[in-house]
């Protein structure tokens, strides 16, 4: 494969040995939600919650392909039932509630299942007084195929986070490439502490939409983690190998 950043030919296996980091330039490649669990949590501690939820097709949506068929194909391709994996596990012996969106499943977009899994996760974190970690990866934002129901998941998850906040919960949000649209504009940017992996694309409107609207070239590095750091929207850029210890340290500082 070619590294999307440095364009050098690299072996996926070599990158996988380095947690999905390009051996040539250090660029952070895609990792699946399942691999992320292995990287972030203490071995064998993850317990999935609400894995039995399955997406439906309430609008009987059809573009070039019916949504129902698209779902089956995506499930087969990714081995996931939908774009979010949630549950509990340990990070350096600290119990946490953890949610991960997988940008491979319909662009990591949020429909009813993603919204419901995250909301239940946040509600359980509130009840059990657990630190909450959500790793976002979504190029799609709110999932078009479930229409307004997807849009409303943004409000639902945000409302659950507001209650969690009121109860004194600590929410660490980790942004990965890409975190866009309705995912950025809801849970991803609501962390008490917000981390981002280097060079991730993060923003509200897609670069193409912006370009088409303003008809100007976009500045170099626009909507990257580094751009957001400079403009004050994230706390730290964290390289993948350090993520686990950075999360553990933050939990310790916040006394959880």
């Amino acid at each position: 494969m070619r590294c999307p950043d440095c364009s050098k030919a690299i072996f996926r296996k070599e990158a996988d040995k380095r947690q999905g980091i390009c051996p040539e330039c250090g660029y952070h490649l895609y990792v699946s939600a399942k691999n992320r669990v292995e990287q972030m949590l203490d071995a064998g501690t993850f317990e999935e919650w609400d894995g039995d939820l399955r997406p439906a097709d309430p609008l009987e949506f059809k573009d070039k392909k019916p949504y129902a068929k698209r779902l089956v194909a995506e499930q087969k391709r990714t081995g996931l039932s939908d774009a979010a994996l949630t549950g509990t596990g340990m990070i350096r012996a600290r119990r946490v509630a953890v949610g991960i969106t997988d940008s491979a499943f319909i662009m990591g977009s949020m429909g009813s299942v993603v919204g419901e899994r995250l909301t239940r996760l946040i509600e359980r974190a509130t009840e059990q007084d657990l630190p909450l970690i959500i790793v976002s990866g979504s190029g799609g934002g709110a999932r078009m195929h479930e229409g307004i129901l997807s849009l409303m998941q943004m409000a639902k998850v945000s409302a659950a986070l507001a209650r969690y906040d009121q109860a004194g919960g600590l929410y660490i949000s980790v942004l990965t490439h890409p975190t866009m649209g309705g995912v950025a504009a809801s849970f991803a940017l609501l962390g008490d502490v917000v981390f981002a992996e280097p060079k991730a694309l993060i923003g509200f409107a897609g670069p193409r939409t912006i370009k088409a609207t303003i008809r100007l070239e976009l500045p170099e590095g626009f909507q990257t983690s580094e751009f957001l750091l400079k403009h004050g929207y994230i706390d730290r850029i964290v390289r993948r190998p350090n993520l686990k210890s950075e999360i553990a340290r933050t939990i310790d500082y916040c006394g959880k």
């Binding site: 809801s186 940017l189 409107a205 939409t209 912006i210 609207t213 004050g232």
Partner: peptide, 17 residues
């Protein structure tokens, strides 16, 4: 919401959330 450079620089996603 407005899709533009300034809007992104000033946190469009953040304020909606």
């Amino acid at each position: 919401a407005y899709p533009g450079i300034g809007a992104e620089e000033r946190g469009q996603a953040q304020v909606i959330a």
